[in-house]
Amino acid sequence: MCPKELEEKYKRKAKAFKNLKHEYISPKRAGMVEALDNSVGRIINKLDALGIADNTIIILTGDNGGNFDETTGGLKGYKGFSHEGGVKEPFIINWPGQTKPGSKNDAVVIGMDFYPTILEMANLPLKPDEHLDGVSMVSLMNGTSKKLDRNEVYWHYPHYHRTKPYGAIRKGDFKLIEFFEDSALELYDLSIDPNETQNIIGTNPLLGEELLSKLKNWRANIGAQMMHENPNYNSNKTEIKRRKKGM
């Protein structure tokens, strides 16, 4: 939620802002960001006051990318998509005595990595049976490694929400997306095309086959649930609803 006074503050700023780059402007979102920043500041100040800041790990992150196109910094897709605009998110950590202030790392990590990471941070034994897809990020945080000991990361999204059902795999700089409805494939080289504007599956069929095989094997190995056809689905009713909504 955005406090009313902050929304009004940024409405006033927006009136005087020369938007030369035609950027998306939202006083409410700007106010929400400031409110979040203030909240984090209050937490840090309280930790200092209690004398436990040096023994407290702070992690700031999100669970998805932007909420719609104008909030992803030009990246393709948004929340729900496996394109970069949907899966790239903020990740900031302060671990006193371990993380170096101002340091950065561009290794690929995923939400499942938090479980083994926090266990190792707390000097607790790892539980491999409970975090099968996760890898501890401690070596990245303390600077002893530049990347994780993992070749691929996977996504499985057999739902209709914002996008069509899909599965995806990223290996190195290459990402393959498989859409379950029609088996359509998208392949991107993120090292030269981070905005995913060029689907290179047509010119790289062997790489596409390799990644698709890995993706299918991964789904089989973990017993991933797939979609089932709805016997009661009526395409005519769906079309009528779309027309009523003006879609």
Rank of each mutant, 00 (worst) to 15 (best):
R150A: 10
G51S: 12
G74I: 07
N232I: 00
Y188N: 05
L140W: 04
E120A: 06
I177R: 03
G85N: 04
E23D: 15
L215H: 00
N232H: 09
T238S: 12
K13A: 13
F68R: 10
K28L: 10
D63H: 03
K104E: 15
P125Q: 03
T72Y: 03
A184Q: 09
G85P: 01
I200K: 13
T163P: 01
N199W: 09
K9A: 01
N142H: 11
K11W: 03
E120S: 14
N67W: 11
E70N: 15
E84H: 05
D37C: 00
L132T: 15
N64E: 10
T56N: 12
G85V: 04
N123S: 15
G41E: 07
R242S: 07
F174Q: 11
L132N: 14
N230E: 04
G111D: 08
L215Y: 00
N204C: 13
L185G: 01
G246V: 06
T163L: 03
A49V: 08
N142Y: 11
H83P: 00
M121W: 09
Y160F: 08
H156M: 03
P205I: 07
P125W: 04
I177W: 02
I222F: 09
H156S: 08
T117E: 00
G51E: 12
P125H: 08
K216W: 01
K147T: 13
S145H: 11
F114K: 08
T197C: 11
D182Y: 06
L211C: 08
L126Q: 12
L176K: 12
K46G: 08
A53M: 14
V153Y: 07
I58A: 01
F81D: 04
N142M: 07
L119T: 05
M247C: 10
L126I: 04
G80I: 05
L187D: 03
G134R: 06
G31N: 11
G143S: 07
Q98Y: 13
I201E: 09
E23L: 15
